[in-house]
Design a protein around this nucleic acid. Structure first.
Length: 337
DNA sequence: ATTCCACCGGAATAGCGGGATA
DNA sequence: TATCCCGCTATTCCGGTGGAAT
């Protein structure tokens, strides 16, 4: 059934991007100065999850490197690398200049290394840039002529909100590319392409792809994930093709699986909080803190809990209603995406 | 309308673990 | 081996404020 499973993977970059031609050319025009050794403006990609931000960044940079192979690209996911140190480390790693960096190497040394790297241009893609906790690294990149950042985030206001003034004013000028959610027919076209490359002919029909696209609500990541789940389930059950019945389980399974993975990524104390909120349905901060303290042997301070909670809000696991006094926490249901 | 205070979240700091160094 | 130095997490301290209480 499955001919090429890479095609169904999340990080697969297609050889041709569908329905994003304007956005791709906007981004490549922005980066064009690199072709004549000029520093480009900072580029921004904005849009909700699953609209192809990461995909067009990778695609565009791969195309750029075909014209200028000496341009180097460092890809950093700021969910994992959110400190100045870690971002710089990742970039050096991409340049193969991190081999002798160790735990006690100061951050300033990493910056110096990057500054004294050769003059070949470096494009740094900062995915999920709104998760960055130390934004001065953006100032670092701005100071270096040979480093050009590409920032990817969901919403422009949120990204700029936690920049300090220095960074904000530097990045005000910059090219912004906005991506809209896919329409259902666009998702169907994307799925058809993946099916053609990844699955045997005739295992899934057009109405089925339409059903997957509708359930994904404009999110290509969910749509492709659903297709992958359905194909796996079908071959496990020894079927020749994807049946409607398999599809019906695959659709909710995909969202549930994403959620489960997120919860598994939490640390124990965060999971306790999540359970308490789930049990209560809706809970006030004071009650939540009290319940937590009786549940756990060595409770963290409330300040730490607030850090955990804001993290969980970012993960879309829970929702905070109200701002200051009178706030309540509740679990975020899947349909609220 | 005014006061009050529960709660959030920024900034500075302490303590920890781990790798390098002497 | 002991010591130094690093970044990271959790903690302490606290200012600001939205909504409840009066």
């Amino acid at each position: 059934m499955i001919v090429d499973s890479r095609v169904l993977r999340e990080d697969f970059v297609p050889s041709e991007v569908r329905h994003r031609h304007d956005e791709v050319s906007h981004l490549s025009e922005t980066l064009e100065p690199l072709l004549c050794d000029e520093p480009p403006e900072t580029a921004f990609l904005f849009g909700p999850t699953g609209v192809g931000k990461t995909c067009i960044a990778r695609y565009t940079l791969a195309a750029l490197r075909e014209q200028r192979p000496d341009v180097r690209v460092a890809y950093v996911n700021c969910w994992q690398e959110y400190t100045r140190y870690r971002v710089l480390y990742r970039v050096l790693e991409a340049l193969e200049r991190a081999f002798d960096v160790h735990g006690s190497t100061p951050t300033a040394d990493l910056f110096d290394r990057l500054a004294r790297a050769d003059e070949r241009p470096i494009v740094v893609v900062l995915d999920e840039a709104d998760q960055l906790e130390e934004t001065e690294v953006l100032y670092d990149f701005h100071r270096l002529r040979h480093v050009s950042p590409v920032l990817i985030a969901n919403r422009e206001e949120e990204l700029f909100a936690h920049f300090d003034d220095r960074v904000r004013s530097r990045l005000r000028a910059g090219t912004r590319v906005y991506l809209e959610r896919y329409r259902a027919d666009e998702l169907v076209a994307i799925l058809e392409e993946r099916v053609r490359q990844g699955l045997e002919p005739g295992v899934v029909d057009e109405p089925q792809l339409r059903a997957v696209a509708d359930a994904a609500a404009g999110d290509a990541r969910v749509a492709i994930g659903t297709l992958r789940t359905a194909a796996r389930l079908s071959s496990q059950r020894g079927r020749e093709r994807i049946t409607d019945e398999v599809l019906e389980t695959a659709i909710p399974d995909t969202r549930a699986a994403i959620r489960r993975e997120t919860i598994e990524g939490l640390i124990e104390h965060q999971r306790v909080l999540y359970e308490l909120i789930t049990d209560a349905g809706e809970i006030a901060p004071r009650d939540l803190y009290d319940a937590y303290e009786t549940r756990v042997d060595e409770p963290k301070t409330t300040r730490t809990l607030r850090n955990y909670l804001t993290k969980m809000v970012h993960y879309d696991l829970i929702e905070a209603r109200g701002r200051k006094r009178g706030r309540t926490y509740r679990v975020l249901e899947d349909d609220a995406v």
